[in-house]
Design a protein around this nucleic acid. Structure first.
Lengths: 257, 257
DNA sequence: AACCGACATAATGTTTACAATATAGACACT
DNA sequence: AGTGTCTATATTGTAAACATTATGTCGGTT
């Protein structure tokens, strides 16, 4: 299992210039369980936008130190999943209405191109993976809300994987998370993220290599999602006030400089 | 200038539930001068891929504390501009050949769609900004290599801005930075990032609202950039060895789980 | 009774010192 | 000579104490 590594260890390091990195496990903070758990909690809507993420409480909940939590929160803030306010703490990110629309627009742009690339690259194993997922989605328990959310989200991830570009895959992952936040912020109550028939349809079109059809279906699917959110809905008076003053402040800033 | 804020401060906070964030300056780590300076240093190729970013040295150079540097490096690592290796330190990210190709592919995908959106939204101020930049690029001092790099990079940023989607803009920024790293890692010596005539051509096509032409020119421009990099070039024997063992290790990991 | 200011409390942010790890040089060995 | 091991040094990672900043409550005032 680690034989290759051990060989490398034993041999003398033939490294002339100091400080050049070599092949070492690049295990990043992204694999950290704290980060992953917070991400899944957000994508499953167990953590709502605006929720406070106190350092001490998280440290106690995960049985780890405050420093560790701090690093995880900083990473999530870099990815715009968490909002850090100086001296106030970290909160689950709550996108503005404009940003929510921009997130959807970006997803439309990227995922339509992604599905086209997926069809171009589709091979035997890709077809198998797609079929497997479609079965999973058809059979999954629709009463288990959390599992249901995970399964449906995985479809879009799978399509991005089929496109064979990890850079795009990471971007899609990030956009999907931020979509969850946008929906959670502006959705009408009691709606589900994806209409139940959209994924099988898109999957079938991919399997049939119908590129134009798949692109159209994907765009339609995303537009349908976007049309279920409404500005200001789900906000109480306080939030309306802050929205008003945010807008005024932004306008003043634009005029001032 | 801050009148709106002060009004908000004076009025009693009508906030019932504790911990909900309100409108406060969301000044993020991204505006930090350390982060910005490192980013510009990378985009100007004054910092090369693999360069060591020691905490103490950076702290001394910027006249700040190690913790501050640490936060900045963590943020840059989250954005894949810096690679952090446990107990070794932070290094300027060096993409693999595959990743470099994926970065270019992602840019082609996003920037062709971006230029189309820019044409759709093009208005009077947009035209003015584009013309102003084209003049700037025509007149700039080609002997000042660093300024030259900045000016040419700004063209792509400007196009993304014209598209009017900040989410996409941020993604383009990130991809452009990573493109710099990809080029710096695999370029032939003494080539410049962009061919000198490409930007004016694309700009003219945008101003003429020739969408198909602009898309084609942008794709061609990016393909031209990509074709100037070559795998393995610029690597010495040591790096070849590490590449071989990296590949073997990756294959073993894939087989194992 | 509503408003304003001061204090107590709880959270975040920072400094300090210390521990763990890797690097580089020297030395012994085959 | 080349290889392996050991030790000194430098750098990164971590923990705990401390300082700073918001928050909530109380009391006084108009």
């Amino acid at each position: 299992m680690k034989r290759v590594r051990s060989v490398k260890r034993k041999s003398k390091r033939p490294e002339p210039k100091r400080g050049e990195p070599e092949a070492v496990d690049p295990r990043s903070i992204d694999d950290d369980p704290v980060v992953q758990d917070i991400l899944t909690a957000i994508s499953q809507k167990r953590l709502k936008p605006g929720a406070k993420l106190g350092e001490d409480k998280l440290a106690a909940a995960f049985g780890t130190t405050r420093i560790h939590i701090r690093q995880a929160l900083a990473h999530l803030a870099s990815r715009k999943v968490v909002m850090q306010i100086p001296n106030r703490g970290a909160f689950v990110y709550r996108p503005s209405w404009e940003e929510a629309q921009e997130i959807f627009a970006a997803r439309r742009l990227i995922e339509t191109a992604t599905v086209a690339a997926a069809i171009d690259r589709l091979d035997k194993s890709g077809k198998a993976a797609l079929k497997a997922h479609m079965e999973l989605e058809a059979r999954h328990d629709r009463n288990d809300r959390w599992a249901s959310l995970s399964v449906t989200a995985e479809f879009h991830i799978l399509v991005a994987k089929l496109a064979g570009n990890r850079v795009l895959l990471d971007m899609s992952r990030e956009l999907m998370l931020r979509t969850s936040l946008a929906i959670a912020t502006f959705e009408q109550p009691d709606e589900q993220d994806c209409s139940p028939d959209a994924h099988p349809d898109i999957g079938a079109l991919i399997l049939a290599r119908d590129k134009a059809g798949a692109i159209h279906a994907m765009r339609h699917h995303l537009e349908e999602m976007e049309q279920r959110i409404r500005p200001q809905e789900g906000r109480d008076e306080v939030d309306e006030l802050t929205a008003i003053f945010q807008e005024i402040g932004a306008r003043a800033a634009r005029a001032g400089g």
